[in-house]
Write a protein that binds this DNA or RNA. Structure first.
Length: 370
DNA sequence: ATGATTTGACCGGC
DNA sequence: GCCGGTCAAATCAT
């Protein structure tokens, strides 16, 4: 079985290498090449780790002994693990957990929030964050907030972020992300978004404040779908594509975290549909091969982060453009241009793509989404 | 009751 | 010793 997986991985690597060769011409976008390289490296990494760690299987929770600069497919293998204070570091394949943590990918975004709308505070970027600290920082007028993924304990998701309000312009929040989300919920989100978006997602939500955000999440958890919820949910989607970003900078490890699916929309050109389809199918295969059934159904409890019915998805991601209609309130509070490239979601996408099963019939004809 | 936030304490790196 | 990052008990919100 492991051998089959291994062969599958290597075969994919081979195909991707071929693809890469085709993309060596100047007209091909750098992002695409980068993506392919990352993908290939990831496959090798995965294959090697399978061999090194006793062939634990593609999505086994062991073997994470890899540089943090690896990319998502391997990141996805991070096993549940808790904070530094916990004891799981003994785990054989986690010898380098400390190191890994230290070398986690990190990138910063600047997010502008218009005041006066009542929607202030760090934006909601589509993830569930839990604040675990706040600190006055030397030279900063505002304290820095420390957040970690809500699913850290439940799923060992090590993603964290720091939110620092800008000195010069208090309406700008500098958000530094660390680590990738390995929690299934986010994968689900990403997939949901992808599966249902034929147009770029609307601007990201900006919750009034964190409490509001949590309130929303709770509501969804309870599947209490009243009007208010759907209203808020409309605002609750991927921040990334959407845009609060004023500027994305980075950052150390920039290339390490290069988003698998961060193709600017130009990178997958219309004339390359076939190849893109191929990539998509590779991805699809990957999903099918690497995740537990839990993730197959969009209707798991976790997925309640978003309502999962197709009709809802339509609302969220605008298959019917409904999200954009109330054009509006959202656009009013968002002042940054869209950018896909460095978005954390981009990278989350790649995580999700690697880890989550798609519906077998997932319509990959929405490649422009990438 | 449960889960999130607050905030002083603690820890490691420099 | 300073500083940034994290922990965890106390507190708050639902």
């Amino acid at each position: 079985m492991e051998q089959v997986v291994l062969i599958n991985e290597l075969t994919q690597g081979k195909e991707l290498a071929k693809l890469l060769r085709n993309h060596l011409n100047p007209s091909s976008s750098k992002e695409t090449r980068e993506f392919l390289i990352q993908r290939i490296l990831g496959i090798y990494e995965k294959a090697l780790s399978m061999l090194n760690c006793g062939g634990g299987g593609a999505s086994s929770s062991s073997m994470v002994d890899e540089p943090a600069d690896q990319f998502p497919s391997t990141f996805a293998n991070i096993s549940p693990r808790s904070d530094t204070s916990d004891l799981d570091y003994k785990d054989q394949c986690h010898k380098h957990a400390y190191k890994k943590r230290k070398t986690m990918p990190r990138w910063t975004e600047q997010v502008k929030v218009c005041s006066g709308t009542g929607l202030e505070g760090p934006l909601d970027d589509g993830y569930c964050w839990r604040k675990y600290g706040q600190k006055d920082i030397l030279g900063a007028n505002f304290p820095r907030g420390y957040y970690r993924c809500t699913h850290r304990h439940a799923q060992g998701c090590l993603a964290t972020k720091q939110v620092q309000r800008s000195n010069e312009d208090p309406s700008i929040f500098e958000v530094t992300y660390r680590g990738r989300h390995t929690c299934s919920q986010n994968s689900q989100l990403a997939v949901t978004a992808m599966a249902s978006s034929s147009v770029p997602p609307p601007p990201p939500p900006m919750s009034k404040d964190k409490r509001n955000q949590h309130y929303l999440i709770k509501q969804q958890e309870h599947e209490d779908q009243n009007q208010k919820q759907s209203q808020e949910v409309t605002m609750f989607n991927f921040g990334s594509n959407a845009g609060l970003r004023v500027k994305t900078e980075n950052l150390d490890d920039r290339e390490d975290i290069f988003p698998l699916f961060s193709f600017p929309q130009t990178s997958i050109e219309a004339d390359n549909v076939e190849e893109n389809m191929f990539i998509a199918s590779l991805i699809e295969n990957n999903f099918m091969g690497s995740f537990s059934p839990k993730f197959i159904s969009p209707a798991t409890s976790e997925s309640n982060y978003f309502p999962v019915s197709p009709s809802h998805n339509m609302n969220y991601f605008g298959s019917g453009h409904s999200v954009q209609t109330p054009e509006s309130d959202l656009t009013e509070i968002i002042s940054a241009p869209n950018s896909v490239t460095n978005s954390p979601i981009g990278e989350d996408f790649d995580f999700s793509l690697v880890n989550v099963d798609f519906e077998p019939n997932f319509p990959f004809d929405n490649l422009e989404f990438f």
